[in-house]
């Protein structure tokens, strides 16, 4: 059974259509990347899945729960990591872990907290206030908090944006580890390198519509002879060539 089923999703803001009949599904244990230029409809799609934005039309099922008709049941299956997280800056990450575990209804003892921090490579920082963590540590901590209740589906919104290569690689390892524990992940990214490194399947969207879906290698193979892609490629086409070929090279703000 799919852990996420999006069917004919439409999101309109007044007269502007942000998502226009989008459909895709994520299987259990899968890392799925949603790729698109700015304004493609990624954030609107995530907002509907997170229950923050009602869909204009279409259905979204999280592990079988309809986000419109059973929002609490659907939300209880989700873990969400936003692009930038703002935790209580003066609290130590040990305090924050206990605090957020409590808010999820979990009772973690000291060993349980240390175990979670250790798995994210943060055990040495447990007495540090959140504000003293580096950008990569903050993102890893944010990932830790969003996985505390063992969600069925994790939504990661550009999780490695602004991180240095080392931190990015470490976060990819953590994301892979989450999948290894049985979780499914939907992530949005602008990084083709990231999509190829961690995603089992990707979907390229633009103007709210699905342009291509499949494995990163499969999509490259499918569009390698497309004239829009060939025109851009210097040698063998890459995923980035396919992405720009399909979405256009005009700069989006």
């Amino acid at each position: 059974m799919s852990v996420l089923q999006v069917d004919g999703l439409v999101v309109r803001y007044g007269g502007r259509t942000a998502v226009d009949g989008l459909s895709f599904a994520i299987d259990s244990g899968e890392i799925f990347g949603l790729l698109g230029p700015n304004g493609a409809g990624k954030t609107s799609t995530l907002s509907v899945i997170e229950g923050l934005q009602p869909p204009t039309a279409g259905t979204v099922l999280v592990d079988g729960e309809d986000v419109t008709h059973a929002p609490l049941a659907a939300k209880s299956k989700l873990g969400v990591q936003l692009q930038s997280s703002s935790f209580q800056a003066e609290l130590t990450i040990e305090q924050l872990t206990r605090l957020y575990a409590g808010l999820y209804g979990l009772r973690l003892d000291r060993d349980g907290i240390r175990d979670r921090l250790e798995r994210m490579g943060l055990d040495g920082e447990r007495a540090q206030p959140f504000k003293k963590l580096s950008g990569g540590q903050q993102q890893r901590f944010s990932l830790l908090v969003s996985t505390l209740p063992h969600p069925v589906l994790m939504l990661l919104d550009e999780p490695t944006q602004g991180l240095d290569p080392q931190s990015r690689r470490q976060l990819w390892t953590e994301i892979e580890a989450l999948r290894g524990e049985g979780g499914s992940i939907l992530l949005t990214t602008h990084s083709m390198e990231e999509a190829q490194a961690v995603c089992d399947r990707i979907a390229i969207i633009d103007h709210g519509r699905l342009l291509a879906t499949g494995t990163p290698a499969g999509i490259v193979a499918e569009y390698r002879e497309d004239p829009r892609v060939r025109r851009l490629a210097h040698g063998e086409p890459t995923l980035e060539d396919v992405f720009i070929g399909l979405t256009g090279s005009a700069i989006r703000d």
Partner: peptide
């Protein structure tokens, strides 16, 4: 939750 924020300073909890 077992533990909650119990004190706030000038910069928040």
């Amino acid at each position: 939750p077992e533990e909650i924020v119990t004190h706030w300073g000038p910069n928040g909890p």
